[in-house]
Computed example of a mutant assay.
Amino acid sequence: MKKLYSVDKASVSDIKEIIKLRVSLLKEVNEIQTEEEEAQITHATKNYLETEISNHNFVSYIAKKDEEVVSVSGVSFFKRPPYLENLQGIEAYILNMYTLPSHRNQGLARQLLEKCIEECKKRDVKRIWLHASKDGEPLYKSMGFNFKGSEMELFL
C-alpha cells in the first residue's frame, strides 16, 4: 500500500529541512566526508536559501509524510546572454533532487520534478538543465531530458 504524501512549494520556514536532505544527498554521493565539511555546507546553504528563496531566484518543492520532509527538489533561475534556441536567455538548473531511502519508489521525485517543470513554464524558461546521478538518469530521460556532454537538458 502506498503511503500518503503532501507536495508543496517550500518556504523560508522549510530551510532547515531542505538543508537536512541536501546534506544527506551530498553524503550519499561522497561530496561531504567530514563534520567540518558538513558544517560549512550547512552554513553556506542556509545563507543562500534565505536570500534566494526570498527573492524568488530559487524554488524548492518538498514532499511530506506526517509533517516530515521526505523528498526535496530545487530549481535555480537565471538569465544568460541569448542564443538561437533561447533568445530570451532564461534558464533553470535543477538540483538537490533527493528522497530519503525509506520513501523511494513512491513516485515522489517524479512529482517534484513535474512541479519544477511547471514552475519553469510559468516563468517562460526555455532551457532546463541538470547533472544526473546514475540513479536519476532514467527519471530524467522519461521526462524528456537529453544528454549534452556531462549534462542533461530539456528545451520547453
Rank of each mutant, 00 (worst) to 15 (best):
I19C: 01
L21E: 01
L21R: 06
L21T: 05
S24H: 06
L25E: 01
L26P: 05
L26Y: 08
L26W: 04
K27N: 01
K27P: 01
K27W: 01
K27Y: 00
V29F: 04
V29N: 04
E31M: 15
E31Y: 14
I32A: 03
I32C: 01
I32V: 10
I32G: 02
I32N: 02
T34I: 09
T34D: 13
E35L: 11
E36K: 02
E38D: 08
A39G: 05
A39I: 04
Q40K: 05
I41L: 09
I41C: 04
T42E: 12
T42I: 08
H43M: 12
A44N: 13
T45H: 05
K46F: 13
K46D: 14
N47E: 15
N47P: 03
N47H: 11
Y48K: 12
L49G: 00
E50A: 09
E50R: 11
I53Q: 03
S54W: 03
N55G: 05
H56I: 04
F58T: 11
V59G: 00
V59A: 07
S60D: 11
Y61S: 03
I62Y: 00
I62W: 00
I62Q: 03
A63K: 04
K64W: 09
K65T: 04
K65Y: 15
K65A: 14
K65D: 15
E67F: 04
E67D: 14
V69C: 10
V69F: 04
V69G: 06
V70D: 02
S71A: 14
S71I: 00
S71W: 00
S71L: 01
V72I: 15
V72R: 04
G74E: 08
G74S: 08
F78N: 09
K79I: 11
P81W: 13
P81R: 13
P81V: 15
P81G: 15
P82N: 09
P82I: 07
L84I: 11
E85D: 12
N86Y: 01
L87A: 12
L87R: 14
Q88L: 11
Q88N: 15
G89I: 03
I90N: 09
E91W: 02
A92I: 05
A92T: 06
Y93C: 08
N96G: 06
N96T: 10
M97S: 09
M97G: 10
T99P: 01
T99Y: 02
P101E: 10
P101M: 05
S102L: 13
S102C: 10
